[in-house]
Design a protein around this nucleic acid. Structure first.
Lengths: 243, 243
DNA sequence: AGCTGACAAAAGTATATACATGTACGTATA
DNA sequence: TATACGTACATGTATATACTTTTGTCAGCT
């Protein structure tokens, strides 16, 4: 029977520390199977639910991999991925010390096209909100945002004054986002985009396609167009620190 | 007694969904106290431990705030930042089931320009490695990568055959990245870029500027140019799940 | 050789119960 | 009046127990 340290922390945390230490020091080799829950019960003298909680949390933190009916294993080092952060454009502009202003072009309720309904994963025909807003930095247009919003989650979207509240702020405040999908590409400006952003037709734009989910429901679909020469998405990120 | 949906998911997940939906639809207002665990037990007809697990996981995911002895509350909207993941391009192409190939244009050791030395945060004049590689997807060029590499961290960079090993793979394997900086913009192709990527001069490209650090030292500076019409950066991300 | 079914092992889920700990609040007491 | 105490109620932790689901193994049959 192994004694866990007599510190002022919950038992399941002590078990987590015990396991992490054994992994960190290499006492448990990378490919070996870890003791089963019942073996931990025997060697540590705690209940299986306590061991289970420790193992579950270490698994969700990415340290372990568990296969039901097989066992618990040490997770291989994560495949490196580098991350870009996309923030609220209004806040960003203000943070740069510039003046933000937005102009509402369209705010309406429409029946979605077949394609859009598909993107919303709708099973029956439902209308959605549609907004088009231009965001200005010091009176220079930098972003054209077209949004489609699921009214079942945000029922009063069209009652808002988006020249005062940023659409982003409003949406983030109204409904929790559980998942985000992004696609970034570079495209030439079409006639309408060029007009709203005050650039030449065909000039380079950054197109950011975004879908957000609340649970299993698609909450918003956005098409954000940035003027290539006036805006860039930036970030600095530490992979080691959790977000 | 409220009936939870009869789907094939664990009970605690149904409880989580039930709570998230009620938050999402605004049925539970932002500042109101949520029902207590025992009230959930009564209204949902599940045990307190199940409710407790659902609430605990939603709390650690940042949706709720709990105070022992007081109650459970809806967390204020996080300063939401949505993240884009950038992966190894070679792996991505292979993952799509396509053929990846790369062509080394330049691999040399040079004295950096003043501007570049500044980006490296060099205090004294040191030479750096410089590589230019074109990445092909099914013989179509999709990315032009220009890299500058700090030789104090990766001393034998110029000894590699980058038509076989992707530069990304090599670097990720050689040195741990503790920090990454990204800037994404959209620019028209200049003459040389256009030649290497086999597009017209002036056509839209996605430009990804990247700096990576190992500890306090700038390890690499990269300029990755993607053909706008042939490539897009994409990601799907769950803020609630830990990485 | 290959399939099948029985069995065992391991994690996953769900409940009941107990006690610990922290907060709020009313009431008794110095 | 101000402090102390008791009570109610909230979340947090720990255990015991039962059952389910997934996976692997292996004997036995075709």
């Amino acid at each position: 029977m192994i004694a866990l340290p007599d510190t002022a922390s919950p038992l399941y945390e002590k078990v987590k520390d015990y396991i992490l230490t054994n992994i960190g020091t290499g006492k448990w080799s990378k490919d070996r199977k870890l003791p089963s829950e019942n073996e931990f019960v025997a060697t540590l003298g705690v209940s299986r639910m306590t061991v289970h909680r420790a193992l579950r949390e270490l698994t969700s933190a990415g340290f372990l991999i568990r296969l039901q009916g097989v066992g618990t294993f040490i997770a291989p080092p994560r495949p490196q991925s580098t991350l870009i952060e996309i923030n609220n454009i209004a806040a960003e502009i203000v943070a740069r010390g510039n003046r933000h202003r937005s102009e509402v072009i369209v705010l309406e309720k429409i029946m979605p096209t077949k394609e859009l309904a598909l993107s919303f994963e709708f099973t029956k025909r439902t209308s959605v909100y549609h907004s088009v807003v231009v965001n200005f930095e010091n009176d220079l247009p930098v972003q054209l945002e077209e949004r489609f919003v699921n009214p079942s989650l945000i029922p009063d979207y069209d009652k808002q004054d988006f020249s005062k509240t940023a659409t982003y702020d409003y949406l983030m405040q109204k409904t929790p986002v559980t998942e985000v999908e992004h696609i970034i590409s570079a495209i030439p400006a079409d006639a309408e985009t060029a007009r709203h952003l005050a650039v030449d037709v065909g000039s380079c734009c950054l197109l950011l396609h975004r879908r957000t989910w609340t649970g299993a429901i698609v909450a918003t679909i956005s098409k954000l167009t940035y003027v290539g020469s006036r805006y860039s998405l930036g970030s600095r990120y530490s992979p080691s620190k959790s977000p």
